[in-house]
């Protein structure tokens, strides 16, 4: 099979992200031609258009891009680390635990005192989840144990999130529960971007640093170590990177599932299955995927405030089942 050269693949994905970004800021309840606002000397737009674009749509699109990139990248790293295509922050309960952390920060009043309490608390939730998973699965990294632990963690974190929201004197508790469990980018502003950005970038940097070690891990633990890879360091980078970036992403968007599952899987053949090359591709692919999902909910049901996580799960859950089936079939051959 002939493959696209890697730089061309990345450029293509980057271009796709750029195009989707522009479409994303143009589409909404009113169509705004971004060019007419962004280009200097352009005419035919009002102050209202400008406000909608700068204060609502651009931050929303920026968040979709950042969060999609985070989810795609962390999925690719987790899959490389666990050497299994079924790993993903959503499925493993990391996103749900981050949501719980965020909810606790909001309803304990911590966020009122200190704005960064929100991402930090979500990050702590994510970190606890990753450490629990490592602890439960142990060295063997048996994927069944990990996924079942993820299922249990997701349910537990979900239940605790609901409990926390129900206990608070919050008239919108039910709505909030839906937001934290399914995720959304509606009504997000530059404040949210500013809050998440430093953490997301830091986390992504740590995740990218695992690249070479993930390649070596293709040969298994012992071989990787005997090639001079420091597995302790790799684990720490992956755990902290996932917790920090997914934690911050979830703090502003709620738990969005399946992006980290679908995107790396689709792109893996394009990079010759090489884990290190999958990272940048999955980050770009994740950004494109989430931008596209966010556009589609505004196009398909503009009046209904469809949650972003609904779309990713509608695509992702059947995809997961199919993947499970094909992995099982492959194991039998």
């Amino acid at each position: 099979m002939t493959r696209l050269p890697y730089p061309i693949l990345l450029s293509g994905l980057a271009l796709l992200v750029a195009v989707l970004f522009v479409i994303s800021i143009a589409i909404g309840q009113v169509w705004i031609n971004p060019a007419s606002v962004l280009l200097p000397g352009a005419h035919g737009y009002g102050e209202a258009d400008r406000l909608i674009l700068y204060e609502i749509r651009v931050p929303r699109a920026v968040l979709a891009l950042l969060i999609g990139a985070t989810l795609g990248l962390s999925g690719a790293v987790l899959q490389g680390l666990l050497r299994n295509p079924l790993a993903e922050p959503g499925l493993l309960g990391i996103s749900a635990s981050a949501s719980l952390g965020a909810v606790i920060a909001i309803y304990s009043g911590l966020t009122a005192i200190f704005a960064y309490a929100l991402p930090i608390s979500a990050l702590a939730g994510a970190l606890i989840a990753v450490l629990l998973l490592r602890g439960l699965a142990g060295r063997s990294a048996d994927i069944l144990t990990i996924i079942l632990s993820g299922v249990a963690l997701t349910s537990l974190a979900g239940a605790l999130t609901s409990l926390a929201l129900n206990m608070s004197s919050n008239p919108f508790a039910a709505l909030e529960i839906v937001f934290w469990m399914l995720g959304s980018l509606a009504d997000r502003s530059w404040v949210h971007v500013g809050m998440a950005l430093p953490f997301i970038l830091t986390g992504m940097l740590l995740l990218f640093a695992t690249a070479r070690a993930l390649d070596a891990l293709s040969l298994g633990h012992d071989a990787a170590q005997s090639l001079g890879v420091n597995l302790q360091r790799t684990n720490t980078l992956a755990i902290l990177g996932t917790a920090i970036s997914v934690g911050a992403a979830t703090a502003v968007s709620g738990a969005i599932g399946f992006v980290g599952l679908i995107v790396p899987h689709l792109l893996r053949p394009c990079v010759g299955n090489k884990p290190s090359r999958l990272l940048a591709a999955s980050a770009l692919g994740g950004a494109a995927f989430l931008l596209l999902a966010d556009i589609s909910i505004r196009v398909l049901l503009p009046e209904k405030d469809l949650k972003l996580g609904v779309v990713t799960a509608l695509i992702g859950a059947p995809f997961f089942l199919w993947l499970l089936h094909s992995v099982k079939k492959r194991a039998q051959v």
């Binding site: 050497r83 299994n84 070479r212 390649d215 070596a216 891990l217 293709s218 040969l219 298994g220 012992d222 071989a223 005997s226 090639l227 001079g228 890879v229 893996r268 010759g272 299955n273 090489k274 884990p275």
Partner: peptide, 27 residues
């Protein structure tokens, strides 16, 4: 100086053989 060949003969992703051998150059 020392290379270890584990008993396990799995390569976890469907890498091209050249990529597998290239991993030996990592050190």
């Amino acid at each position: 100086q020392l290379a270890f060949l584990p008993q396990e003969r799995t390569v976890h992703w469907a890498l091209d053989c050249e990529e597998v051998v290239m991993l030996g150059r990592m050190p």
